[in-house]
Amino acid sequence: MKLTQILFLTSLMTATSWVSAAPLISAKEAALPAASGALATRGISRGPSVKLVSPEADTPVSSPLDFKVNFEARGEGKIDPSSIKVVYMKSPFVDLTPRLKNSISASGIDFSKADVPSGSHTIRVTAKDTDGRETNTVFTLVVK
């Protein structure tokens, strides 16, 4: 094998074994003051179900983490992926939706290797179905 082939194979193996984390929340955003006011969501809703799958809410995890949320429509409606909004509850609010755009589908959000600074991070996910019914879900990610 020629030296150039060996170097190429070595660099290819190194590149495939190295996986970079993508920023979900920056340190600058994490340093913003917490949003004021009630973060409560409505009670019974006919809107879609929004469930945090990973990481488990309020359970300390390390960064990078896999950020996964499942959506489930109720009744005849279907989830409208263009209606999904993800907001970091800081003052002012930080819209995380553009960072997650390629990870959002009608079935949920699947954002692997999310880089999140240490701390407690409150996030609101809003989803609508094709009938216009809306659900807001608030959860907290805890990163050690």
Rank of each mutant, 00 (worst) to 15 (best):
F67A: 06
G75T: 03
G43R: 15
S83N: 07
S82I: 01
P48F: 00
I84E: 08
I44Q: 14
K78G: 11
P55N: 04
S54R: 13
S45W: 01
E56G: 10
D66E: 09
P60D: 04
S45L: 05
I79R: 01
V50K: 09
D80T: 05
P60M: 06
V61D: 05
V50N: 05
G77S: 13
F67M: 01
V61G: 07
F67G: 05
A73T: 05
S83H: 05
S49Y: 08
F67Y: 12
T59N: 14
S49R: 15
G77F: 00
E76W: 00
G43P: 11
S83V: 03
S63H: 06
I44H: 13
V50L: 09
G47L: 08
D58H: 12
P81M: 08
G75L: 03
S49H: 10
E76S: 12
G43Y: 04
L65M: 12
S54G: 03
G47N: 07
V69R: 05
F71T: 01
S62H: 12
G47Q: 10
T59R: 15
S49N: 13
E56V: 11
N70F: 04
P48W: 00
V53E: 13
G43W: 09
N70W: 01
S82T: 10
S54P: 05
S62Q: 15
F67I: 05
D58S: 13
S45R: 09
I84M: 06
I44W: 13
